[in-house]
Design a protein around this nucleic acid. Structure first.
Lengths: 133, 133
DNA sequence: CAGGAAGTTTACGTAAACGTAAAGTAAATA
DNA sequence: TATTTACTTTACGTTTACGTAAACTTCCTG
């Protein structure tokens, strides 16, 4: 294999990503500062690849879920973690289990709010009917 | 009806609530400061009733969902809102619709993360098997 | 009646997640 | 070659959601 594999090497500038995800470049650099992104450099300039882009997407998804950047960082560690030792693996599985419990709680919470909102909505609708007829 | 209806008047002190929900009294006073709670007073002392207790529960549920206190406050306004005018009602229903969209997005996000966590978990399990056999 | 225990207000401190200049570099373009 | 455009670092400012401490009142108890 003397040929370096540069196939499908898609690169992004910081403004590419800022436009794609509708966030400021400040935010993107901040995420790097917090260790969530690690773009390569060409001179001074940051070069982002596909992996960085995916990570950014995950960061924003985490934010929508109310995860702190630190929590999202821990999730990244889970993705990337060293899976060589049984000890590491069991620690990981505990963390995963905790996160899953957390998410299940959120599912419950969301469903509860959705039910309440639907109730209010239906109430509004029926009142509107009495007002317009 | 000359009898004042004081049946089922359950009261709570600030420390009652702080213990029940495992939060500090500082937080509870802070929520009041932000207009999310409005306990009555007996002298200086705050007296919370059932409604306040429910509200506090909702505040904490909102927090778990990543709602800011301001957002939770807006939800409270929806619950309590004046439903007399058709205009008000249609505005409300728009806000409800927005919130529902927001929550549906969160449901999708959570399900996505859950799927990924399950993948990692299964991966861990199978590796653990190869390590222990 | 001294001394907790539980409540209060006031106010400064803090962590997270950026916003917002300021001041400089580097490449592309008129 | 001058300048616009896109990038960079440094650094102070801001909002949210409290933590923490000080100083005070009120009530109960040994």
């Amino acid at each position: 294999m003397t040929l370096t594999n540069k196939v499908s090497q898609i690169n992004y500038s910081i403004s590419d990503l800022s436009k794609e995800f509708d966030i400021t470049t400040r935010s993107i650099r901040f995420y790097e500062d917090k260790g969530l992104l690690a773009p390569t450099r060409k001179g001074q300039t940051r070069i982002y690849n596909q992996r960085d882009q995916v990570r950014l997407k995950l960061i924003l998804r985490g934010k929508r879920l109310g995860f702190s950047l630190a929590e999202t960082g821990r999730l990244f560690e889970l993705y990337d973690a060293d899976k060589s030792s049984a000890k590491q693996l069991t620690i990981m599985m505990e963390l995963i289990s905790e996160k899953k419990d957390d998410l299940k709680q959120k599912l419950e919470d969301i469903n509860a709010v959705l039910i309440e909102l639907n109730d209010i909505e239906n109430n509004c609708k029926s009142i509107l009917k009495t007002l317009t007829t």
